[in-house]
Amino acid sequence: MANERLHLTDVTKSFNGRKVIDIKDLKLGIHPIEGLIGPNGAGKTTLMGLITGRLPMDTGTIIYYPNVDGGAIDITKKRLDQVARMGLVKSNQVIVDFDSLSIRESLLLALTPPQHERFFHIFNEGRLEKEVEEQIAEYLDYFHFQNPEGHALSAGEKKLLDIIRCLVLKPSFLLMDEPTAGLPDDLTRKVMDLMKQKANEGMSILIVEHDLDLMWELCELVHFMAEGELLLQGTPDEVRQDRVVAEKYMGADHV
């Protein structure tokens, strides 16, 4: 068993005096694909926001291990962009896109290394395209967009583009916030197959998802959260049969 990718200790976050996150000790990324489940309002998205530096946390520390055998980095106070450059990225639950970029341009943007993005470099587009052509083609061949040279049209295309934008960054740890919400079934299957393949290649993935059948199938370890706290960790079978989980998800009456 490999070491963890993330270690959170005493992480708290309050909004308007209400504590929405209170995590004592949590290790993520021990298994290639892990799941994070919990009822709406459990704080799953907020927790991911704290990890990626999009939201500042009130207390606590987060330690990140970018490589299995590499050193530890304290990312507690790191910004979103700094964390992303360390290979820790998150795909979005809500539909987001760059309105003025085509699908291809969006991927080019994600693949452009900083040394190509300088105000005095104005003739380097051709060179950049040559460098990253293969990587873009890999995804555009796998997923079929109606028109890769145009904008992402449907909500599904935008959602898919968001996931691919994350993948081309070659993250070592990928957080996915409800990746299949809004995707048609056949695409969900394709995305999941790709996730498994990436996990086999060494990428750690944490999925937040309400489609529990999918979670039981994909994840080797599932974390269960409710009201900002981590209540349970275990294999899909353990979590599925747990009384607390059923209560929190479906209400005590159904148990």
Partner: peptide
């Protein structure tokens, strides 16, 4: 003219469109 069809121009457009999303791709906007 040239800058806007170069990677730098694309970065600037992405910042105008959605700065947080650009940051999440590792851009120090």
């Amino acid at each position: 003219f040239f800058m806007e069809s170069a990677p730098y121009g694309r970065l600037m457009r992405s910042i105008q469109d959605n700065e947080t999303l650009a940051q999440s791709l590792g851009k120090s906007t």
